[in-house]
Simulated assay, not measured.
Amino acid sequence: MNGSYKKKMLSFKYAFQGVATLFRETPNAVIHLILAISAILMGFLFSISTAEWLAVTVIIGLVLALEAVNTSIETLADLVSKERNATIKKVKDLAAAGVLLAAMAALAVGVLVFLPKIIELFQP
């Protein structure tokens, strides 16, 4: 096995360790994961279209990825300074805003994809 291949394999190992850390140490990531699993199960239940699967999949990936970035920024910021710092607060707030905006988009996707199907269930 050459060194380049080993480095690539190690990078995947470290990335999966990051995923494990994210879900082990970040309660909001666990909430997002539960909602993502719920959306996937509903997708199978309602037999959503390929385009709908695409929207659901992309938005799940976006929310989880931004949660990971937000968590990494907060962790690094806390390491840099334990004292109150206006710039660090601004950076952390902006990172959290990214997750919030993606979560709001996920809600919109969920409503657009699943609400009509739920309403249809209750039609006579």
Rank of each mutant, 00 (worst) to 15 (best):
G61E: 10
I118H: 09
L10S: 03
K7Q: 03
L121Y: 03
F12H: 10
A55G: 14
T21W: 13
Y14S: 03
G3Q: 08
L35E: 05
E74K: 06
L41D: 05
M1E: 10
A15M: 05
F44G: 09
I73N: 05
E25K: 15
S49H: 04
P124G: 08
L66E: 09
A20V: 12
R84V: 15
S72P: 00
L115Y: 06
S47L: 07
T71Y: 09
V63L: 02
F44L: 09
I40N: 01
V99S: 05
Y5R: 04
S4H: 01
L121R: 15
I37L: 15
A68Y: 01
Y5C: 10
A96R: 13
A29G: 12
K8T: 06
K13A: 01
A103F: 06
S72K: 06
S4P: 00
A106F: 14
Q123F: 09
A106Q: 12
V58Q: 07
A102T: 02
F122E: 01
K92P: 05
A96N: 11
P27L: 10
P27I: 11
G18H: 14
N2V: 01
F46Q: 00
L100W: 12
I34N: 08
V109G: 13
E67W: 04
A29V: 01
A68I: 00
I73A: 03
A105M: 02
V58H: 02
A95K: 13
V63I: 06
F23N: 11
I73V: 15
I118Q: 08
N70K: 10
R24I: 07
K90H: 10
V19G: 09
N2C: 04
G43H: 03
K7T: 11
K13M: 14
I60S: 11
I119A: 09
V30K: 11
Y5L: 13
D78K: 09
K13H: 03
S47V: 08
A106R: 00
V58M: 01
A29M: 05
A15Y: 09
I73Q: 07
P116N: 05
R24Q: 14
F122K: 07
V80G: 00
A97K: 04
F114C: 03
A96M: 02
V58E: 00
L107M: 12
N85H: 07
S47G: 04
L115C: 15
V113K: 10
Y14Q: 12
P27G: 03
G3S: 05
L54W: 07
S49E: 11
A29C: 08
T21N: 13
I88K: 05
K90S: 13
V69F: 06
T87G: 03
L107T: 06
A95Q: 10
N70G: 04
S81A: 09
A86R: 15
I40T: 12
T75Q: 07
A36M: 10
F44W: 15
I37T: 11
K89V: 04
K117V: 00
V63K: 05
Y5N: 06
A97M: 14
T57A: 00
E74H: 10
K8H: 02
A103D: 02
I119E: 08
V91K: 06
